[in-house]
Design a protein around this nucleic acid. Structure first.
Length: 739
DNA sequence: GACCAGCCGTTTTTT
DNA sequence: ACGGCTGGTC
């Protein structure tokens, strides 16, 4: 038992041992919160004799859930670890609903609609309501509906609150969208949460069984919960109140999808008897990296729980600041640097990661890395499960599980091409709608030759094609009952002549690539072989719908990880490159006009910086290609918040080489002191450039100073260069006086 | 109903 | 630069 507490610092130990009542753990990055979470579970089971069946842990990704179980395997043995309930909010809700959704008058074999399905369905809604897609972008409308659902606002309530014209549109769409989802026996991502809350709300008896079962609740990444998740937790914890949440408001980066950091900030009001534990010692990073992170976060808006992070890890190498000429040069620098470090035996590929704000930025990196033969794995981007051929193939499997899934049905109605064109589809849809039945039902009626009052005007040839499709689907439904998943997939591939279809459609090269994806899909399907026959398909489909891309990171592969900053949350690497630290990218231009969202961008950078264990590179480019044109870039404003002596530029002597203050080894209680907000350490006290002064810049060339002023402890110089006037920060721009 | 050529928007982040 | 969509033709 005692070894469960060994090696934990006093705060961590308190977090593990405080068994009863609400606990809020405010944990800085790298403070071992995953460890605390895991050890607490182990402690409950091994030292307190708690039955693992009574524990529910919620993690942010499936990967985190899997890793937690693996660690518990080692700590308390597989038997105990397997009995535990661990998962993501969405995964857990899907499980709860599968069991109990009949209480809401629904079928258990519901499909889960991902963003692509959601958008397709929204298109259908717009067509049904005769709304123009151009004027009413499906994504925009769906975004409104999604945030309404995250806030637990039903269509009726939305209608009540709607004010503006657009709200009226959204209201009508929301209603129709829900009706179609129900008709398709489908739930979208947001419904998984909403419907679970509704289930618990309307059926206290069902809720009570869960409250009884889950005596201990643990939630990770609490700062990124949305309102629906918050309510869900409140419902589940209401009885036993053994709620243990861990989070870091400074790392809240999902506000844009409904996460509300106030859930965490108000925890003490929600649970007045809550214990609050601060984890401030960082075990991950060097002092240099931590100092940089603190400088960035401290310059932001005021925070509630201000943590004083410290580490005993020592100063480590200085954080590097690098400016590339353009994105390719930036990528080349990254690739060269990784190759250099690996060649020098300093690190392995797998310990390196490159992080960026947008997926589009990965292209230049991929090119540079592969040109140098640096192995890499790209996370995100064109996601595997979203590739067309994969989704098309999956659509058939989804139909086999639930033929009422109209989005999947229309998706493959004419794929591969079987002579069912747009007109036929439109007519079938119209007919089904006038009968008030799902498309599949309409197909059946049609095939059985049933006559209905709303007439159907289809050519005999079209009717025959539709019959053929129905036969195919029904064949799959039958096959599903007797064949294991992998065989079902093989049957499907044969019946639709998938390989030939791919060749026909895409040409040899592309078709082969796509066929590889189908084979990967088959390999994934094969993993469900061990399950009972009737569970294989549903489990497979559910996992496919809910896996995150980070779940696909292969920790065994010796390869550099390329990943977005959002997905990097919770991960750590010895060497981290943050690229594209420029205005418009980080902070992203879409967040520039909103103070809150700007702060979220800052936290995103903070998250990125704190992923690094030993070496950190902050990179930006002088010019960047976006869309089809290149633009000159301005270094991110957040860089200006980092005291210049913390940063080193390659090929330059350290900015403050004569002052060894930062090089001293950190003492255990060497609490980091934040620089006074809005005044960078070592910043100028007066302007040093005067109008008319001629200056030279490494990349811009010669120019003339137009004006200069002090901004946030730095000097902002406006210089007229040959191409145009530019504003530069004196601490970054390397302006050389001439004449 | 299939096919082709040209056009447009796409890109912020994701369970 | 790419892929999906539109509008035209066969």
């Amino acid at each position: 038992m005692s070894d469960l507490l060994e090696g934990l610092n006093p705060a961590q130990r308190r977090a593990v041992e405080t068994v009863a009542g609400p606990v809020l753990v405010v944990a800085g990055p790298g403070s071992g919160k995953t460890r605390v979470l895991t050890h607490r579970i182990a402690y409950l089971i091994a030292a307190q004799g708690v039955d693992p069946l009574n524990i529910l842990a919620v993690t942010f990704t499936n990967k985190a859930a899997r890793e937690m179980k693996e660690r518990l395997d080692a700590l308390i043995g597989p038997a105990q670890a397997q009995a535990l309930t661990v998962g993501t909010f969405h995964g857990l809700c899907a499980r709860f609903l599968r069991r109990d959704i009949v209480h809401l008058g629904r079928e258990q074999d519901f499909a889960i609609y991902d963003s692509d399905d959601q958008e397709r369905l929204m298109r259908r809604v717009l067509r049904d309501l005769n709304l123009n897609e151009k004027q009413n972008p499906p994504r925009a409308i769906h975004a409104r509906i999604s945030s309404a659902k995250n806030a637990l606002i039903s269509p009726q309530e939305y209608a009540r609150h709607s004010r503006a014209y657009f709200d009226e549109i959204v209201t009508r769409c929301y209603e129709r969208y829900q009706a179609l989802l129900r008709e398709a026996n489908a739930l979208d991502f947001d419904d998984l949460l909403f419907e679970t809350v509704r289930l618990f709300d309307q059926h206290p008896d069902v809720l009570a069984t869960y409250q009884e079962r889950y005596v201990y609740l643990l939630v990770d990444e609490y700062q990124d919960t949305n309102h629906a998740q918050y309510v869900l937790i409140k419902q589940l914890a209401a009885r036993r109140r053994n709620l243990f949440v861990v989070g870091d408001a400074d790392q809240s980066i999902y506000g844009w999808r409904g996460a509300d950091v106030r859930n965490m900030l108000q925890f003490e009001q929600d649970y007045p008897d809550a214990q609050v534990i601060l984890l401030e010692q960082n075990y991950r990073s060097t002092q240099s990296i931590l100092d940089t992170a603190q400088a960035v976060i401290a310059a932001g808006a005021t925070r509630k729980h201000v943590k004083r992070l410290w580490t005993a890890n020592g100063a480590g190498p200085q954080v590097m600041l690098h400016e590339g000429y353009d994105q390719d040069a930036e990528a080349a620098f990254v690739a060269d640097e990784i190759a250099r470090l690996v060649a020098a035996g300093e690190t392995r590929y797998r310990d390196c990661a490159v992080m960026y704000r947008t997926n589009a930025q990965s292209r230049a990196l991929e090119e540079a890395l592969s040109r140098r033969g640096v192995p890499y794995q790209l996370i995100g981007g064109l996601r595997f499960w979203e590739r067309k051929e994969v989704k098309d193939t999956l659509a058939y499997l989804r139909l086999a599980a639930n033929p009422y899934d109209s989005v999947s049905l229309t998706r493959v109605l004419n794929w591969p091409a079987r002579g069912i064109g747009e007109r036929t589809e439109a007519e079938l849809t119209r007919w089904a709608a006038s009968l008030g039945v799902p498309l599949y039902q309409a197909l059946r009626e049609l095939a059985e030759g049933n006559e209905y009052s709303p007439s159907l005007s289809l050519a005999p040839r079209a009717v025959a094609a539709l019959r053929g499709f129905l036969g195919l689907v029904d064949g799959l439904i039958a096959a599903r009952r007797e064949l294991p998943l992998l065989k079902l997939l093989e049957t499907l591939v044969e019946r639709i002549e998938l390989r030939e279809a791919l060749l026909r459609e895409y040409g040899e090269e592309s078709a082969n690539e796509r066929w590889d994806n189908i084979e990967e899909l088959a390999a994934f399907a094969a993993r469900y072989n061990g399950l009972p026959l009737e569970e294989q398909l549903p489990c497979f489909l559910e996992e496919v719908a809910l896996v995150a891309d980070v779940d696909r990171i292969d920790p065994q592969a010796d390869a550099v990880t390329c990943i977005t900053l959002h997905q990097a949350k919770g991960l750590e690497y010895a060497v981290v490159f943050l690229v594209g630290l420029e205005e418009g990218l980080l902070p992203h231009s879409r967040s520039a006009d909103d103070r809150e969202r700007l702060e979220e961008e800052r936290r995103l950078l903070y998250v990125g910086i704190t992923r690094a264990r030993r070496r950190l590179y902050l990179c930006h480019a002088f010019r960047r290609e976006s869309f089809n044109r290149t633009n000159l870039s301005v270094p991110s404003r957040f860089l200006a918040d980092i005291p210049r002596e913390l940063l080193k530029r390659p090929g330059q002597r350290p900015a403050n080489a004569s002052a060894p203050a930062r090089q001293r080894p950190a003492r255990p209680r060497d609490v980091w002191r934040a620089p006074a907000p809005s005044r960078a350490v070592g910043g100028p006290l007066a302007v040093s450039f005067v109008p008319g002064q001629r200056v030279r810049h490494n990349t811009f060339g010669e120019g003339v100073v137009v004006s200069s002023r002090l901004v946030d402890g730095d000097e902002e110089v406006t210089v007229s260069f040959a191409d145009r006037e530019r504003r530069l920060l004196a601490s970054f721009a390397r302006l050389e006086r001439i004449g």
